[in-house]
Design a protein around this nucleic acid. Structure first.
Lengths: 356, 356
DNA sequence: TTGTAGGCGTTATCAT
DNA sequence: ATGATAACGCCTACAA
């Protein structure tokens, strides 16, 4: 039961007490309750050693009882650091991105950062808008995942003067601090594996052309073939867009060839999903008639029929690593190296020896 | 080519120009450049009619050229509105949640709101922490999706004094403004459909017990059976946890029965995925030997083998609706009704007439 | 150990 | 139509 008449000091003509709707209490309210000055409250709440232990404890108790929450916006204004990062993705409604975001969020939260999420929908205009929004929110850093338009706005990004980390960017080379998977090695390994299984007619269903990850994976595929002295016939290399529907159509093309491939490397698991569908719809069997490989090791790669041989990307971990890199950068560490993730092949049921 | 020597007015002994690292320009910098006062800049940038059209245009031009971005944090401090919402999910790395988040983000962004994303990992402690973080960020509103712990912290939420919208909450009834799917109707429809196909031994693989959506779906299933005068044998009703692994085990139980079911209603698509796996591993066929139904209509439901008969939840749309409701609430509209989404059955290949 | 006095970058309320 | 001036809630000197 604290007294009600304690504000004698400021009692003189309080100009009709603005009668606020009793919002969150401010630091001054707590100070008044604890009969100390606001700076003391501030110090106590930050566990500063410069404040008497007993009063500090008392202040903390009072603050707790009053449900006091320091305003991050006021703090941000004075400290010029918001402890906030911006995260821009092409779309969260994508299993790969979802995992990455989850890893980032966790690492951010563990380190006292809040994350703004923005979905660009792969639309350059939208991406531009969200970056500007982040600038206005005065985020301390930015992470961009799998951007297909990143290059366009890197000037805009750098102009903000905050560190930027890119994950699997499709137009790399412009920003130093990124996290990426070794696309070439991964696809190379898959191709070698298929060749070891006796395959000779091996096709590749890619992403849209012009993207970095597709180019790298295609390289890995071509190198694999070249090393085995197999001529990579142009009609073996077709394009999808990273989603099943387009991959379905691409696979149809391959099946229509005079000599269809006995194995198909797909740009990613989603592409493999579409390819599987096409093959099944022709009454053919995987891996009996055709072997299929994916890339990513999405959750669903274990649950396709048959389960996919693929390359694992540690998506959650990649998110964490990106955030950790960003933390270092925000702390002023200049020597943050880009991170290259090693590809790991996961062999499952979608690949087998070529039919005799 | 603007002159370099134009700040005559303030040239007198600028105290050694703090030599800031040339951060973002402030409204005062723009004011100085435009030779007006900051309030005028503020007005011009808000397209206030109270400012001369010509000078307004000039100010806007200068601001643009200087790359000026008004600080949302300073604005938030004075206006007491951050145009920011908090979004707490159990995990983004879940296709269902991903879609919902995407819908929310889009609607938020379209209305000038930024969204904080927090991943509670289904951990009550974490969920509590993120809500507190949101409180400190002074978000204008909060959306919680599929919370399994929501009930625990609703007091905490309401204490913040901002509107809260729940999506498919597992402990409803405590907050008025939510978006949810008609679980019972959906599962009822599926059950009726299976019965119409001649099935009599129909099982149900649920979520963990105690959750609202599971209870409702179980109800729909039981009512469906009851209406057909089929006794729902207790051993037909088993529990998973919404994920494939647990569903696999649950399905194993069902297959071990003396009289295994000829059809199985699964709590959701993920559960159906596990059930499919189990059935296939026994050399049985879907729908030849057993019919299977899912719930959600995730992307992958079209790509299982066979594709799943299921109930569509318009996830993205639900996210949009939730955000739109929140916008109304934040605007002070008291009469925002809860939204109940109608279930829509999608018939695909995983269901067929019972074997003769 | 504590209190007083700025100031962070806006918007809002007065004047003029 | 524009300019002073005062908040907003906090932190950081500096003073006591």
């Amino acid at each position: 039961m604290r007294g009600e008449s304690e504000d004698k000091t400021t009692e003189i003509a309080q100009p009709a007490a603005p009668r606020q709707t009793l919002h969150q209490p401010s630091i001054k309210d707590i100070a008044k309750l604890a009969r100390v000055s606001h700076p003391t409250v501030s110090r106590a709440l930050q566990n500063s050693p410069l404040v008497n232990a007993a009063t500090a404890e008392k202040i903390r108790r009072i603050a707790r009882e009053a449900g006091y929450r320091p305003s991050a916006v006021a703090r941000g204004l004075v400290t010029q650091r918001t402890r906030t990062i911006g995260l821009v993705v092409t779309t969260v409604a994508d299993p790969f991105t979802g995992e990455v975001v989850s890893g980032i969020e966790q690492a951010a939260s563990d380190n006292g950062y809040c994350v703004y999420l923005a979905d660009s929908n792969a639309d350059p205009e939208r991406e531009k808008k969200v970056v500007q929004a982040f600038a206005e929110q005065r985020v301390d850093g930015i992470i961009v995942t799998s951007s297909r338009v990143g290059a366009l706005h890197l000037p805009l990004l750098s102009e903000m003067g905050v560190p930027v980390v890119l994950i699997n960017d499709q137009h790399p080379g412009l920003v130093a601090h990124s996290v990426l998977i070794s696309n070439m090695d991964g696809m190379h390994e898959l191709t070698e594996y298929l060749i070891a299984l006796g395959h000779r007619r091996i096709a590749y269903i890619g992403d849209q052309s012009g993207y970095y990850s597709d180019t790298e994976r295609l390289d890995g595929y071509q190198i694999g073939l070249a090393e085995a002295n197999i001529y990579a016939r142009p009609e073996w290399m077709v394009h999808g867009n990273g989603k099943p529907e387009a991959a379905f159509r691409a696979m149809e093309q391959l099946l229509a060839l005079d000599e269809p491939p006995t194995a198909v490397c797909c740009y990613n698991d989603m592409t493999a999903l579409g390819a599987l569908h096409s093959i099944h719809s022709h009454g053919l069997r995987v891996p009996g008639d055709i072997s299929i490989t994916g890339f990513d090791d999405l959750f669903l790669a274990s649950y396709t029929d048959p389960p996919l041989t693929t390359i694992r990307q540690p998506m959650k971990r990649m998110g964490q690593l990106a955030m950790e890199n960003l933390l270092k950068l925000m702390a002023g560490d200049e020597s943050v190296p880009p991170i290259k993730i090693k590809a790991e092949m996961i062999v499952r049921g979608s690949t087998a020896k070529v039919r005799a």
